[in-house]
Amino acid sequence: MTRTGSILLSALAGASALLLMATSPATANPNAINPIPVLNGTTGLPNLAGRSRAIFQMTGMASPNNTQTYNVLGTDLGIMWDNGHGEMLTAFGDTAGFGLPNLLAGSAWAWRSNILLRSHTQDPAGGIFFDSVVRDVFGQARDLIPSPKIPFLEISRIPTAGISADGVQYMSLMSVRNWDDVGQWSTNFSGLAVSGDNGETWADLPETRRPNEGADANFQMNSFLKNGGYIYEYGTPSGRNKAAYVARVRESDIANLSRYEYWDGDRWRMNDVNAAVPIMGGVGELSVMYNDYLGQFISLTTDPFNSVVLRRAPSPAGPWSAPEVLIDTRELPTAYAPSIYPYQTGRDLYFLTTVHSQYNVVLMRTTL
């Protein structure tokens, strides 16, 4: 690193330390973080004594992926999906790096809201390694969908789900208006963005937006599942500790909101978002997948105590089982947003989890 870079690193680390207000994973402002190892009080992978193990750091300066080389010092979420051709795409959310600080948004770092990395790793036992990243002209990871990052207008545009439909890539993103109390935030809307070139460029689809009002408020954060010719969209209101709902649509109609069907607890109701009933409660960021080993659908999320939990169901709509704790909040109180690895791995379940105290994403493994 050059002397200028070292000076900048010291200055930004010091500024971030002043902003680091708490180790809670849901502080009102996720910009208030420090992703520099040791200086943020963390070293190495979390040491978990329960059912799950931390096996690989995906992002940050302590990661074998060396994401700092494209200016990703800290980031969150890590939403994975297959692009339809055996390559895994991973969208990350609010991302800190060097550059002009975004002080208006409360950050001492240069801040991006949504970035994308690619991987061909098929066996995650030794970690997940990235092959490429969507970059700007300076070689840095760049925003896919721009955001003004102005409080009470749109402070961030954050990906919550991704899927390939008929060979085209789709992301669901939420427009965050402002960070509120711990674990809560206000959104303007959620909506889809589309890419026809494997995630290199993206176009916003305004016609898919769900405003944060009425029953559409129940689909501000989403998770996708592909099954039986349908894409299932699991939705929750913005924030954590909320109810989850489910809709479905034919793969070819993913961008047509009028073709979505909503589960009313008994049957699917076409184009009637008001019919959707809760299918589970106490949910934060959600990830859903069919698991071959169990022969059941599984979901991961955090519960009201901020433990990472798993539920099982015989069908996409449920009924969903009581939650099983995979990571107890007493082991890792700053974990959030578990996301399931999109390929089958037998009895071992791999998933990504953000660790807010170091503001980076870690690969976890649990035995089913």
Score class of each variant (00 low, 15 high):
4 T>A: 15
8 L>K: 14
8 L>F: 10
9 L>D: 09
11 A>V: 13
15 A>N: 08
17 A>L: 14
25 P>I: 01
37 P>C: 00
39 L>W: 12
42 T>A: 09
48 L>N: 01
50 G>Y: 00
70 Y>N: 11
70 Y>A: 08
80 M>K: 10
89 L>H: 12
93 G>L: 04
94 D>V: 11
104 L>C: 03
114 N>Q: 08
120 H>K: 15
121 T>E: 06
123 D>G: 04
129 F>K: 15
130 F>L: 07
131 D>A: 04
139 G>N: 05
142 R>N: 09
146 P>W: 05
149 K>C: 14
155 I>R: 08
156 S>M: 10
161 A>N: 04
167 G>T: 04
170 Y>P: 01
173 L>Q: 09
176 V>Y: 00
182 V>S: 12
198 N>Y: 12
201 T>Y: 10
202 W>H: 06
203 A>D: 15
208 T>G: 05
209 R>A: 09
211 P>A: 08
214 G>Y: 01
226 K>S: 14
228 G>T: 11
231 I>Q: 00
232 Y>K: 02
264 D>V: 07
265 G>V: 01
270 M>I: 12
271 N>W: 00
271 N>T: 02
273 V>I: 14
274 N>R: 15
279 I>A: 02
283 V>W: 07
286 L>D: 00
291 N>Q: 09
295 G>N: 01
302 T>C: 09
307 S>C: 03
311 R>I: 03
313 A>V: 01
313 A>D: 02
313 A>H: 01
318 G>C: 00
319 P>V: 01
321 S>P: 06
326 L>V: 06
329 T>K: 13
333 P>A: 08
335 A>K: 04
339 S>D: 10
340 I>Q: 05
341 Y>M: 03
345 T>S: 12
351 F>S: 03
351 F>G: 04
352 L>V: 07
354 T>G: 07
358 Q>S: 10
360 N>P: 08
364 M>Y: 08
366 T>F: 09
